[in-house]
Design a protein around this nucleic acid. Structure first.
Length: 274
DNA sequence: TTAAATTCCTGTAAGC
DNA sequence: TGCTTACAGGAATTTA
């Protein structure tokens, strides 16, 4: 599933392909994928606009167009962006095809349809409550151990659920939350009620390290994740706990514990994480 | 404000 | 073999 490293990989690859290009056509096959504005307006207003820049914020891809317009893509669980030529074979569940002025296509496919596309000015989208308030970027210099400590200290929900809360920290999902907790030696199921500065510092380092490794390996291909060209990432080979419940801990050899937190599978080592 | 539960969705795999 | 069921989970929404 696409988390920060996966979205970063896609955004980095997509930037040189899109910036300077004009959107020439929009083929919207599954209108509910567009959450703002009304699908007819999306199809009417998007063509003709030139892409000025492209950024990632949390798990969102922000494509800035002329006239202050913003095209926002969130991949949800199974969303894929693929760069193709018009004749290329089409994946099932292709819901949107953007034609570009150089004859190529940007296609959005998403079997589970948890993903979404938004179009509007930033002001528009905020007013319509389509752009949530996101916490800091974990890889920004402004995100310090002190800041992480401030945001977690005193909270009563299990640590893992707080790490998944995008308003506390943007971009971390189930995979990297489990991996960071393991690397930091901290149990994901305990509230950080009186989290020490030391442990917050370890968690801060582990989060950044996990995300940076993920980016270096072009993401984790667990279910459907592939890059713009359909290639898988390599980070899944380095995962120490995610998806490994019951298998031996890579550090101590004891079986890893699988529990559910907030409906999400959570794996940790009872010996190595305290 | 915070925390927990519910909902959306379909491909895959396990179980009978 | 073929059917049913459970599971995967990001985030918006609802409830307490």
């Amino acid at each position: 599933m696409p988390e920060l490293p996966e979205v970063e990989t896609i955004a980095t690859d997509l930037r040189p392909l899109l910036v300077g290009r004009r959107v020439s056509s929009v083929d919207l096959r599954f209108p509910t994928i567009v959450r703002h504005p009304e699908p007819e307006l999306f199809v009417r207003d998007l063509p003709g606009h030139v892409v000025h820049s492209l950024d990632r914020r949390g798990k969102y891809i922000l494509i800035r167009l002329g006239d202050g317009l913003l095209l926002v893509v969130h991949l949800g669980m199974t969303g894929q962006l693929l760069h193709k030529l018009p004749g290329d074979a089409q994946r099932p569940h292709t819901h949107v095809i953007l034609g570009l002025d150089n004859g190529t296509e940007l296609r959005y496919s998403d079997p589970r349809r948890f993903g979404r596309l938004l179009l509007g000015t930033e002001e528009d989208l905020v007013r319509a409550r389509k752009l949530p308030r996101l916490g800091p970027e974990p890889l920004d210099a402004a995100f310090t151990p002190r800041e992480l400590h401030r945001r977690l200290y005193g909270r009563r929900a299990p640590l893992k659920l707080l790490l998944l809360d995008q308003s506390i920290l943007a971009g971390v999902g189930n995979i990297y939350a489990d991996e960071a907790c393991f690397a930091a030696g901290i149990r994901p199921d305990r509230p950080p009620l009186r989290l020490s500065r030391l442990r917050a510092g370890r968690l801060h380092g582990a989060l950044r390290e996990a995300l940076l490794r993920g980016i270096a390996n072009r993401g984790s291909s667990i279910d459907d994740y592939v890059d713009l060209y359909g290639a898988q990432g390599r980070q899944q080979e380095e995962l120490k706990v995610y998806g490994r419940g019951g298998r031996p801990c890579s550090t101590c050899g004891r079986p890893l514990t699988l529990i559910r937190l907030g409906g999400r599978a959570t794996v940790f080592c009872r010996r190595c994480q305290r």
